[in-house]
Simulated assay, not measured.
Amino acid sequence: MKSMSIKVFLVSTLSILPLLASAGEIAASSDTLEARSLVKSFGSDLKHVLKTSMKSGGPIKALAQCNIQAGPIAEKNSSSSGWDIGRTSLKVRNEKNTPDEWEMKTLRQFEQRKAAGENLKTMEYAETVKEGDKLVYRYMKPIPTAGLCVTCHGSDVAEEITTKVKSLYPNDQATGFKVGDIRGAFTLQKIMN
């Protein structure tokens, strides 16, 4: 009789475990879906400013507008979503975007994954980490270097652009990129309830 109870208990427990695992995955997936949506919105806002500025005044105006508007765009997207949203890179232009330890590790993993042939368009990483006494959901998505990016971030940047970059970002490291390189990454985090 006892052996029958144990079998029923084990079968019941084993059938519930996949459901519990699925519930955890659903929560992670909804956070990831939300993060993807925020990246799309933030990236679109930044791209709009860049393209509009390039069209109306060329790269010098685009640099000035990026310098003025990138922070407020990140703040607007953050405050309306409950997430902390930004950008970072292994080679930052703005020192305010210097990666923390977790971001640095993730950026290096992105480089390894790219070297192994993974597609940048589908690459991402998310993890729930403990920070102090809080659980924080963190998400990153690489930013590929596109043709327009090399105008200000490439190896052969015009002297007037280099001069403007140095005036806006005296400690700039964000040059030498080629099309297809990982320029940096969107980085998002939120405190879990």
Rank of each mutant, 00 (worst) to 15 (best):
L20I: 04
D31N: 08
A185L: 08
N193L: 09
I161C: 06
R183E: 05
S3L: 15
A28D: 10
S15F: 13
A146Y: 06
I60H: 00
K121M: 04
V136H: 13
G86R: 07
N119Y: 01
L107R: 01
F177P: 10
S78V: 09
H48R: 11
S89I: 15
L50E: 10
V136N: 09
A23Y: 07
K190E: 10
Y125H: 15
N77K: 05
A146G: 13
L50T: 10
C152A: 10
E103F: 00
Q173E: 04
A126K: 14
N193H: 06
K178T: 11
P170V: 12
L120S: 05
N67T: 00
C66I: 07
T151I: 05
E101S: 10
I73N: 13
K76A: 15
A174I: 01
A21R: 12
C149W: 09
G58P: 06
V165I: 13
A116Y: 08
S30K: 07
D84E: 09
N119L: 02
D172F: 11
C66Y: 03
K55W: 07
A62E: 00
K141L: 03
V8E: 15
I161V: 14
L148W: 07
M192L: 09
Y169R: 08
E111K: 04
G176D: 12
C66H: 01
A116D: 13
L107Y: 04
G176C: 04
I16G: 03
A35S: 09
A146N: 14
E131I: 12
P72D: 11
Y169A: 01
Q189F: 10
F42W: 11
S41Y: 13
S29E: 05
E159P: 04
R87V: 00
A27P: 02
E127N: 05
G43L: 08
E124V: 14
C152I: 00
W83R: 02
T151N: 05
K105C: 04
S22F: 06
Q65L: 11
S167F: 02
P99F: 07
D100M: 02
A21C: 05
E159G: 03
A185P: 12
L107N: 00
P59W: 02
R108N: 13
A146F: 05
K2Y: 15
E111W: 05
M104L: 15
Q109W: 03
S56T: 10
L63D: 04
T162F: 04
I73E: 08
G176F: 13
A70G: 05
G58A: 00
L63P: 00
K96Y: 08
N94Q: 07
Q65K: 07
S44I: 08
V39N: 06
L90T: 13
Q109K: 03
T175N: 09
T162S: 12
A115F: 04
I182S: 11
G184S: 15
I85K: 15
L33V: 04
T13L: 10
H153F: 09
G132F: 09
S79A: 12
P144T: 00
Y125L: 13
T13K: 04
I143D: 01
G71S: 04
S81I: 12
I161G: 02
H153S: 00
W102I: 14
G24F: 09
W83Y: 11
F42S: 08
P99E: 15
L120I: 01
T162E: 14
N193W: 01
A70W: 05
A27N: 12
G57I: 02
A158W: 02
L107P: 02
